[in-house]
Amino acid sequence: MTTTTQAPPGSDRPGGATPRGRRDRKPSPSRRREARFAYLLLLPAILATVVLVVLPVLWNVTISLQSLRLIELRNFTPFGFLQAELGFDNFRLVTQQREFWSTAGRTVVYALAGTVLSLLLGLWAALAMRRPFRGRSAVKALLLVPYVLPVVAAAFVWRTMLSPQYGIVNAWGQDWFGWSRVDFFGQQSIDLPLVGTVPLAFSTVIAFEAWRYFPFAFIFVYARLQAIPKHLYEAATIDGATITQQFRHVTFPALRGVLAVLFLLRFIWNFNDFTNIYLLTGGGAGTRVISIEIYEWLIGRSNPGAAAALSLILAAVMLVVLTVYVRWQARRDQA
């Protein structure tokens, strides 16, 4: 793996960013031309970001404060809120739903379980693939398949494989283990011997999520593993460290940074996920998360105001998680 060298922001190389260390207040004409050219080049990107990212978030706030039904959209203007009656009715409406807290809790569990499982699978795969063997690059390419496969295709294959009527998993389970048919995506819970009652559809959705995203963790951990200096292991071997001890004292400390970043990114993305669950269960059988609920408000119940309020709650929860995480990381780095 090569690493592209990149000037850190704020360095004085032309590749860097802020013009630091300049004494003169007035920039020279050539500097000014350079800056003007830079703004010109950045303009389309900035414009697109402002119009399609920043403004929508602000609109979202105003929409959430208005009573707005889809049929009233004809009269909607971005500044209509200046005359409209504003209030927190939408927030009250969405949080007072009977299922609100269980949906919120389920979203957290879904994000957490999917993240941890995909990270563990990715770590495991990277460790197994670490030393070269014949055909390693082919296997490596195969392991990336779940991540690059179009999500609609992946979801449809899973739904077919696990179908109670004609799914290959149920067919094999019946032939070999004498299962009775299991409707993995339609059955809310199942009683398993020894384990007890398990939320079936929800667990299957989490399994899909772990399967689909483990390659993401795999690529990063694999790349990091290749960069650990060999002499660390030589020294550990001389000291008589076994393989598990080498993992604990050499490999794992080196991976901690990458795992922390992966955990954060995956948690955020899984927390926000709509597509996977929508395609697998449509939010039925005990798999409804907040994103699905937002879509329901927007399309099913034609109530953009409530959808906007709920999406802001989702963003707020995520911000809280992010802040707690960053604080916690900072404290650990200090210690």
Binding site: N272, S311, L314, A315
Partner: peptide, 8 residues
């Protein structure tokens, strides 16, 4: 969350 942009 993509839905924060999607709604507006």
């Amino acid at each position: 969350p993509p839905l924060v942009f999607a709604v507006p």
